[in-house]
Write a protein that binds this DNA or RNA. Structure first.
Length: 621
DNA sequence: GCCACCCGA
DNA sequence: GTTATCGGGTGGC
């Protein structure tokens, strides 16, 4: 007994960061201000101790500690070096950002309070007065009674039960939640028809126009909107009002639940607000990045400035830019429907009881392939690259990818190309026991005929809003090109891609090892073909799309180039990620074992109620 | 330019 | 007894 206690006492301080990490990713969420975190932490720690999950967390914690000591060593090194050029670059960047600061928009982030739990409470009002959570295994959310006990979203169910034995856990009912979400969205649309849903229960709105037209202050408009939502749907929402999305998001957490908060749109107010704001409050800074920043002496966004000369070298260019924008309180002001964002991948994965038998694992893969086929059918995509993911019983994760000779979407193909990767992993990791398997396709190709624009994004059903709204970014270049011409060009490009794909597929069926035809420049054109120089020097299409002549194809390509250039040159600041062409070979041998990458990214939205995401590290101001 | 891995929501 | 899905960044090669 005494020995055990002594042991506890001695290893507790060592595990300080681990305990903090075990508190979970949603530590900054509302409702736990009055909670004794150290007590909660002890309970979680003791409930988890010794489990495989815990051991994995411990490993991760150690390697993060190692990584941090490297960062610190690098920092000490930099402090002895001449960083004046980095300092100047940082100051130039600040000046540039400051020039682009836009305080003219009224951006609102609205967030439903404990949404899933709130919806369940509507059906069963008696649950309002007791601690209750939604989600089995892992809590998806919980009501404010439960939060008083330290329960939080993302927490393991059994841990939550340790914290609060009387906790009632309900199963998820997504249909119910999306139905309610639709009711709410209908109201949001009255305030901003181009509102952007960030997830089922969150949305961004630009109320600039609404406030002007109705002669309302932002506070009044938001109060009215929240009241209307509450009245019509019986759900309470919190909201943040500010000059940009990043600030609005932070503000919406300020007076939760059922409250609102405005950060006034003047520079000094914003700077003062950021000065004392803990970094972790910013969307995109999670547990890991928080620890890294803390280690170099950055706890609040205000602290960032003093370290500006080192950030790029310590955390990378993107993180540097992101952090400087945090310091200045800058964020994006363009709010747009989630459908305007381009999906990049479709995948599925599932956790199961540990298994190691090759036969069972193959069956599992087949099942996942079936699932993915269903998802691809529903969403209307094929994928050029197939990725497999496995999680061992130790929680170690491995991924492998390969590129089939043509874009795939059928379960048979998903399985056929996935299996070799799985088999190879089984060889590399003797007697491996798995707890999760997943498949995902990337470099996806849309099979949907309708409305795909040059960038692969879906266009709006009703495009009139775009051209008529004067306030809304007239600088994005859309208006430059007549609608009809645009549509036609988009249609052509679609058709060409389809043709190319079909060709590739057929080609494959005929000859096993297909390679992109790369003809030597001096080679003779095939006899009965028109004078041409395939592959196309502009779009690299290997051969004539359908019955198009080379010249007409070139015309099309050239016009498309100029359109793209026009759009690019009229598009404002943020350096968009460069377009990445695709093509790949099969998977490589596995060096394996842990490494650490850099953080960055986030935000999720839904198309039909499902997930999607977007970047803020790249997001402009 | 691809791949594997990691982070965050 | 610790999820599922997606986007993005980094570093190695």
């Amino acid at each position: 007994m005494a020995a055990a206690e002594r042991h506890n006492a001695s290893d507790a301080p060592v595990h300080h960061s681990l305990k903090y990490s075990l508190l979970g990713p949603s530590l900054t969420k509302a409702g736990q201000d009055s909670v004794d975190q150290s007590k909660v932490s002890e309970i979680i720690y003791n409930a988890s101790k010794g489990s495989k999950f815990f051991n994995n967390e411990e490993t991760r914690d150690k390697s993060l500690t190692d990584k941090i000591s490297k960062i610190l060593a690098r920092k000490r090194q930099l402090e002895r070096l001449d960083v004046s050029s980095d300092l100047r670059r940082a100051d130039d960047y600040v000046a540039e950002l400051e020039l682009g600061r836009d305080l003219s928009q009224v951006i609102v982030h609205m967030d439903c309070d404990a949404f899933y739990a709130a919806v369940e409470e509507l059906d069963r009002p008696e649950l309002k007065d007791v601690p209750m959570a939604v989600g089995k295994g892992v809590l998806t959310t919980c009501n404010y009674h439960a939060r008083k006990f330290g329960c939080r979203s993302g927490m393991a169910g059994f841990v939550a039960m340790k914290l609060c034995p009387q906790l009632i856990c309900l199963p998820l009912n997504f249909e119910k939640y999306s139905a309610k979400a639709q009711e709410i969205r209908a109201i949001l649309a009255e305030y901003d028809p181009r509102y952007e849903s960030a997830s089922v229960d969150e949305a961004y709105l630009n109320l600039t126009q609404y406030c002007e037209e109705h002669r309302l202050t932002p506070e009044e408009a938001v109060r009215q909107m929240r009241a209307e939502v509450h009245e019509k749907t019986k759900v309470t929402v919190s909201a943040g009002i500010a000059a940009n999305a990043k600030l609005a998001k932070i503000a919406s957490n300020q007076n939760k639940p059922n409250g609102q908060f405005r950060i006034a749109s003047d520079r000094q107010t914003i700077m003062d607000f950021m000065k004392t704001l803990p970094c972790r409050k910013v969307n995109g800074i999670g547990r890991v990045f928080e620890r890294e920043l803390d280690a170099v002496g950055i706890k609040t966004c205000g602290d960032i400035y003093a370290h500006r000369a080192y950030l790029s070298q310590l955390f990378g260019q993107k993180a540097f830019q992101f952090l400087m924008q945090c310091y200045l309180g800058l964020g994006r002001t363009n709010i747009q429907p989630a459908e305007d964002y381009e999906r990049k991948s479709v995948g599925t994965e599932s956790t199961f009881r540990e298994m190691s038998s090759p036969t069972e694992l193959r069956e599992k893969l087949r099942h996942i392939a079936d699932e993915l086929e269903g998802d691809l059918k529903r969403t209307g995509f094929k994928g050029r690259t197939l990725c497999i993911k496995i999680k061992l019983h130790t929680y170690e994760v491995y991924t492998r990818q390969m590129t089939p000779p043509f874009a795939i979407h059928l379960a048979d193909d998903l399985y056929k190309y996935g299996l070799p990767m799985l088999e190879k992993l089984m060889k590399e990791i003797p007697s491996m026991k798995l707890r999760l398997m997943g498949l995902r396709v990337t470099h996806i190709v849309s099979l949907k005929k309708p409305e795909i624009d040059f960038f692969g994004r879906q266009r709006l059903a009703s495009s009139n809003k775009l051209s008529t709204s004067s306030k809304l970014s007239s600088n994005d270049g859309w208006e430059v090109w007549p609608e009809a011409e645009f549509e036609e060009a988009a249609r052509q490009e679609r058709d060409e891609e389809m043709n190319e794909l079909e060709k590739l597929s057929q080609e494959h069926e005929e000859q096993k090892d297909f390679t992109i035809t790369e003809r030597a420049p001096d080679e003779e054109p095939a006899p009965d073909q028109e004078p041409e120089k395939w592959p196309c020097p502009i779009c690299t299409l290997p051969q004539p799309p359908d019955d198009k002549s080379f010249n007409s194809h070139i015309d099309f390509c050239l016009s498309r180039q100029t359109i793209k250039e026009a759009i690019k040159s009229t598009t404002p600041a943020p350096p968009l990620p460069t377009e990445k062409p695709q093509a790949a070979t099969s998977s490589k041998p596995a060096p394996a074992r842990r490494k650490r990458g850099r953080p960055k990214s986030g935000a999720s939205t839904t198309d039909n109620g499902r997930e999607k995401r977007r970047a803020f590290f790249t997001g402009g101001t």
